[in-house]
Amino acid sequence: MKYLLVEDNEDLARAICSRMSFDGHVIDHAATVSGAIDFISTYDYDLILLDIMLPDGDGREFLKEHRAREKDTPVIILTARSEVSDRISVLDLGADDYITKPFDHEELQARCRAVLRRKHGTTRNVKKIGDITFDSVSGILQINGQDIMLRNRELRLLELFLSSPNQIFSKQKLADRLFSYVEDVSENAIEVYVGRIRKHLEGSSVRITTLRGLGYRLDHG
């Protein structure tokens, strides 16, 4: 997946970019409307994350122009303004969704996934490891030609494992990804979800190994 982030706040942009790369997405960053126009005229992105208030213009203007070129790249608006007043205008202008700053990165990912699912169906983001294929947008896991529909948390967990096979993930790290920071999560909850993934993966060459005291790791082959 290749994303374009249009955001003038350098700090925030850097943070979003580093997090997106961590999740395995390629992301370009433009700080101005004119920069963003340069980017979209050279590459067809899968998704655009667009801030509203930009130094050389309004993100809404960019959106209007983008839609006027008959491009249907999905756009998610990042807004820091009050939701009450902004929401109608951005959706009317053809944005697919919006998210209010500050946001939970997992929520942003969830919205990206929902928008991509609506726009593209299932063709773009299929990962193959061993004898399984996994489409993190639609949440479909395929083993031996058999489709398994994953629930959202299972999907996110598997996506994380698949992003770096052979890496060890501690229980805390997994908990941070699956649960919001306000929930007090017991380690048992993680074991439940890992257990479910294991069950789904039964009969494939891919498995999740427990490393006592360290965490879990995805192995294949």
Binding site: S18, R19, F22, A80, S85, P102, F103
Partner: peptide, 27 residues
Amino acid sequence: EDFIAEAAHRVRTPLATVRSHAEATLQ
């Protein structure tokens, strides 16, 4: 209305930056 929107913008943008950094660091 502009004031309310602007106030929201001013408060939320720095919070968003801090939050994103904190999350990235947590990883």
